[in-house]
Design a protein around this nucleic acid. Structure first.
Lengths: 99, 99
DNA sequence: TTGAAGATATCGGATAACCAATACATTTAA
DNA sequence: TTAAATGTATTGGTTATCCGATATCTTCAA
């Protein structure tokens, strides 16, 4: 197993990516990540990330009737995601054949 | 810029991937990463990673005439890389279109 | 209006990634 | 044989990710 593939450092990246496709709440994000990764990030992990992304102006709360607090990507967040994606692809260049 | 795309946690993964393609020394790995990422991981970063991977039995020193100490992937390392790659792809599922 | 349930938020602490600086080893050139 | 150059290794300290536990807020049903 090893520690080769945990998500340190890429959590915010994934969160941005997920929110870019659909407005999501913290809980929904936790579930989506569980689907992919197997384990659900704890509340103490996900909410600070959302807060930080929010404070950086990358995401923004969106009003809705449901009981969950959803976020959307801001213009600034789009730019950041684009940049991060570019870097991601440069770093993981040779993974493109693996999907 | 943000901290969205640093390499925390994925350094060992990349190192495994690089070595899987070609036997490499620490210095060569540092250079390859610089090419991709922009910044060169410091000695204090890369050598402990190599040591850890070596102690886990994922990589192995390979004798050679040059002045650099090269590593190759072991059978165990191949397995680990395969597993990690699988997980990577599950997690970053939607990045496949970005390359 | 109150209580239960579910989502969100915060806190304290553990771990590991990472760097800068320094020390050690090996090769090659002089 | 020595010295420079280059690669390797270690140490100490910083930072950010992440979890578990606990607390707060919100919604809805009773």
């Amino acid at each position: 197993m090893g520690t080769c593939c945990d998500m340190r450092g890429f959590l915010s990246f994934i969160v941005l990516k997920l929110i870019s496709k659909k407005n999501l709440s913290g809980e929904e994000i936790r579930q989506e990540i569980k689907k992919r990764k197997g384990s659900k990030p704890s509340p103490g992990t996900i909410y600070p990330v959302l807060k930080a992304l929010s404070q950086s102006g990358f995401i923004q709360e969106v009003k809705n009737s449901g009981k969950m607090k959803k976020y959307r990507l801001t213009k600034k967040g789009q730019k950041e995601l684009k940049l991060a994606t570019k870097k991601f692809c440069e770093i993981f260049y040779d993974m493109k054949d693996e999907f």
